[in-house]
Amino acid sequence: MIGELLHGMTQSSGAGFVGVSLIFIYLAWILTIGIIRVREAMHSDHH
């Protein structure tokens, strides 16, 4: 799935390239925030 997205990105217009790049940045942001919240929950004293 990601390979198809990257392949399509290389063949798309400038706007499509920017759009796909922003999607990857957004997904990375979601994963980062999720990991941070899980770590905070694990270190929390409210078990």
Rank of each mutant, 00 (worst) to 15 (best):
I33T: 12
M42H: 09
I2H: 06
E4N: 13
G8D: 13
L31W: 06
V20N: 01
H43R: 13
G34I: 07
L22S: 07
M1T: 11
A28L: 04
S13N: 11
G19L: 14
S12T: 07
S44K: 04
S12Q: 09
S13P: 01
Y26P: 00
Q11K: 15
M42Y: 06
E4M: 15
M42G: 05
F24A: 04
M42T: 10
M1A: 14
I23Q: 03
Y26L: 11
H47Q: 09
G19P: 04
S21C: 06
A15T: 10
S44E: 00
V18G: 02
A41F: 04
S21G: 12
H43N: 14
G3F: 15
I25Y: 03
S21Y: 04
S21P: 01
I25L: 12
L6D: 05
R37N: 13
E4S: 13
M42F: 10
I2W: 12
W29M: 08
G3M: 15
L6E: 11
I36L: 05
S12W: 00
F24P: 00
G34R: 03
T32W: 13
I35Y: 05
G3L: 15
L22G: 07
R39S: 09
V20E: 02
H46A: 12
I35K: 07
A41V: 05
V38S: 01
H46C: 03
L5P: 00
Q11M: 14
L27T: 08
S12M: 08
H7A: 15
T10H: 00
A15N: 08
S13I: 00
I30V: 15
L31K: 11
R39G: 06
D45W: 04
G16Q: 04
H46Y: 11
H43Y: 08
S13A: 09
G14A: 14
V38H: 00
M1S: 12
I25R: 05
L5N: 02
F17R: 15
E40G: 05
I25F: 09
G14D: 12
I25N: 05
F24M: 09
I25C: 04
G19T: 14
G34D: 02
E40T: 06
I2F: 13
G19R: 14
I25P: 07
H47F: 11
I35P: 05
I23T: 11
G16I: 07
G14V: 14
S21H: 01
A28E: 02
D45I: 13
R39Q: 09
G34W: 03
R37V: 13
S21N: 08
A41I: 06
G3K: 15
F24R: 00
T10V: 02
L27R: 01
M1W: 07
G8V: 08
A15Y: 06
E40A: 10
L5S: 03
T32D: 01
G16L: 03
R39N: 09
F17T: 13
L5G: 00
H47D: 12
L6S: 06
I35N: 02
G19Y: 12
R39P: 03
I33H: 03
E40P: 02
M9N: 04
Q11P: 04
R37C: 07
Y26R: 06
G8R: 15
I2D: 14
I35Q: 01
A28G: 06
H7W: 08
V18N: 02
F24S: 02
F24Q: 01
E40H: 06
L22Y: 02
I2A: 13
I35L: 10
L31M: 08
D45M: 09
S44D: 05
F24N: 03
G19H: 11
A15F: 10
